[in-house]
Design a protein around this nucleic acid. Structure first.
Lengths: 237, 237
DNA sequence: TAGCACCTATAGCAACGCTATATGAACTGC
DNA sequence: GCAGTTCATATAGCGTTGCTATAGGTGCTA
């Protein structure tokens, strides 16, 4: 990673592409604009990056470094779920601060071709969720939770980017964020972790007790009988 | 030059665009392809639709009719929250069945330019949520809930589209869906969480999440389906 | 000094979205 | 019945796009 070892043209192309992209206001950026700003001619771009998408991949890669750096700044607070919240917010802010770059990174979806960056972001999220799982604060597999949270995070960020700046309301982000985190976190999971039992069993036992204590009329008596039988089968695994 | 038996050029252009888009496998479709398949020449397209985006808007509009029709088929089940679930699933299936059209509709995000279709989809979701609110099943403003749910719905669908077909796992959708719906519908659960007491609702929710995380085979798939349905009734009613 | 690998430039291709202009057909008013 | 208007389509081509065939310059090693 020697800064001076980099041929000037390659770096100037990267900087030119990033700069034009950031100021493009959504309009497409042409290779001629990029090469002109970089002060090189067309074939130089293709020599170094193969094609336009290769150049964009390189820009995205640099953008992802920045994204990850932002995520890691907040990392260890001792409360994994709080870190996940910060991670979510950082994701949204990154998208709103650099919408064009974000759209190239996360918005350029094509069928059955997943950008490498999505897998990287998922891995980052999963890594964080593993800490929560280790602390017994997770009721779902960290990988599934990471995919679910990231999907919602991207969806919210794209929605906010698409809105006029004046109408952007971060409550949308906060609300969705807390809904997702609450869904994967669970007090019962904590108990299960402590007692060493499967969370299914713990939850089934808790529900069984609660159902018998309260006179719930959501199910008919025959439904309830069958329900409790299944609950018992689950609990005695 | 126009034969009387043939549909007018405008309709042939629409059909040609829709057909090429559906089979494009993500590659961009040129106006020349469209006009050639429709059997007309370039200016005809621009006479009827203004520009390429105008034609795409028309295709999207037709696609949205189909989308709405799918949504309305399921409409009144008497349980608004169950309708929302079906609406979510229908959204995902629409996206997976017609990924290219879906990407034009919901994936073509640009900063500060919100596609009209997003507002329409939000309105549709909000309308459904209003019924839930009228039944006292909502703890959030229907508009905010609709925006939040739709954002997550789009995010999940885009993620699934980007994945290879073989790896697509609808659990991602189910899990995120229930998390979002639970978050906006959790009257009792919110109280329970705030008070820290275990209740039927909280236990049911925990069991629900735990069951979906661990692939328990204590119940057959049909049993599990019914079980989860009851669980859902207990959790939300 | 010769050779070689790397980097860059000139010039231009095919495809793209789109349009200036023109022609035939159908309707309208008198 | 016929000029005037409008609609729908076609011919031809403009400017821009991503990209490349080809070749020249530069610096290092033998």
């Amino acid at each position: 990673m020697s800064f001076e070892g980099q041929p000037p043209a390659k770096m100037r192309l990267l900087q030119a592409a990033a700069e034009l992209l950031a100021n493009s206001a959504g309009a497409p950026v042409s290779t001629r604009q990029i090469t002109q700003l970089a002060g090189v001619s067309a074939p130089t771009l293709y020599h170094h990056f193969g094609d336009k998408e290769g150049l964009y991949d390189a820009v995205v890669s640099a953008g992802f470094e920045e994204y990850v750096a932002g995520e890691r700044d907040f990392a260890p607070s001792g409360q994994p779920l709080e870190d996940i919240r910060r991670m979510w917010d950082n994701h949204v802010h990154f998208g709103l601060n650099q919408p064009e770059l974000y759209l190239v990174m996360f918005g350029n979806i094509r069928p059955e071709s997943r950008p490498a960056i999505v897998a990287d972001a998922e891995a980052l999220m999963e890594e964080m969720l593993n800490k929560a799982a280790a602390a017994g604060q997770l009721s779902v597999q960290p990988r599934e939770a990471a995919r679910s949270i990231l999907a919602a995070n991207v969806g919210v960020t794209l929605m906010l980017i698409a809105e006029p700046v004046a109408e952007r309301n971060l409550d949308l982000s906060t609300m969705t964020r807390d809904a997702m985190i609450f869904a994967v976190a669970s007090d019962q999971a904590e108990q299960a972790e402590a007692s060493g039992k499967s969370s299914v069993v713990v939850a089934a036992i808790a529900l069984n007790a609660a159902l018998q204590a309260s006179h719930s009329d959501q199910l008919s008596s025959s439904e309830l009988k069958l329900f409790l039988e299944w609950l018992h089968r689950i609990s005695t695994t």
